[in-house]
């Protein structure tokens, strides 16, 4: 069997996910061993962009026209496309403003509408808003171990499925006291597991960087936090960081509706 050909790409993001792949020091050679790496610009400028790929790993959100073109090219030549990191999977912190709010923010930052001339800006969106995504690895940034496991499965021809259960499970496996019960804003119940509940294990509330689970019950979490004395602003802010503006907007309506 010939080695699967892969490419590792970045759109708009901090490049932290690619960096964490490079940080897999011990296993990096092994990765080069099982895959034929056609493109990984962060590691080497000698990229082959002509050959078709078995797997493309893409980090970053689609935030410009150029991002979108690049993504479509990658999609066209790749059998499987894997979104890595919160930006690629959910849109990232930058996607907390959409629609009108995004335009306002853009103007506030850049002064006018078409300040950047290299490419046209787009409201930041996850890859799945434009192309088919075959597998995801959330995290901000992605973690080494989950990445290696995912890469390993792909090398074996398995398309990995991200488990859909919350951080709280891993938190309880570690026997942590629940921060919600201690009156903090912990987003564990709404957030994808996989990080190993790092933050709550250090007594720091989960801020949701692995992105929301499917059919999250944000209404219940919002209700609970309000009962615990938090203001609408505090709750909305926390929800918006990694949950996107849409969730924050829904939440605000819900919380204010209950107040009136």
């Amino acid at each position: 069997m010939s080695k699967p050909r892969i490419g590792i790409y970045g759109l708009t993001g901090c490049a932290g996910d690619q960096l964490n792949i490079l940080n897999c020091e011990d296993e990096l050679l092994k990765l080069f061993d099982i895959f034929e790496i056609k493109s990984f610009v962060m590691a080497s400028s000698a990229a082959d962009e002509e050959s078709p790929l078995d797997v493309a790993f893409v980090e970053g959100s689609v935030s410009t026209e150029k991002d979108l073109e690049h993504l479509k090219e990658i999609r066209k030549k790749s059998r499987l496309l894997v979104a890595i990191g919160h930006c690629a999977v959910f849109g990232g912190v930058q996607s907390m403003f959409t629609g009108k709010k995004w335009e306002e923010t853009y103007r506030a930052v850049y002064g006018k509408k078409d300040a950047v001339s290299l490419t046209r800006p787009l409201p930041p969106k996850p890859l799945s808003a434009y192309v088919k995504v075959d597998a995801v690895l959330p995290g901000c940034p992605i973690e080494k171990e989950p990445f290696l496991k995912l890469a390993g499965l792909l090398a074996k021809g398995v398309v990995p499925r991200h488990p859909d259960f919350p951080v709280c499970a891993e938190c309880k496996w570690k026997e942590n006291e629940c921060l919600l019960l201690k009156g903090e804003i912990c987003l564990g119940p709404l957030t994808n597991s996989g990080c190993g509940a790092i933050c709550p294990s250090l007594n720091i509330p989960c801020i949701g960087c692995w992105g929301p689970i499917e059919k999250e019950n944000w209404e219940a979490e919002a209700f609970l936090l309000k009962e615990n004395g938090f203001s609408v602003e505090e709750v909305v802010k926390r929800f918006a960081i990694f949950g996107g503006e849409e969730r924050a907007e829904k939440l605000k309506k819900f919380l204010e509706g209950k107040e009136g």
Binding site: D26, E27, K30, L31, I34, L148, K149, A151, G152, L153, A155, K156, D164, F165, P166, A169, W173, I213, E214, K215
Partner: peptide, 21 residues
């Protein structure tokens, strides 16, 4: 789970819950 270093699959068994979707 695939263990890259040993080139081995590891079947993980973990607590799960009927309240998960």
């Amino acid at each position: 789970e695939y263990d890259l270093k040993r080139d081995e699959m590891h079947r993980q068994r973990f607590w799960y819950s009927c309240v998960f979707r």
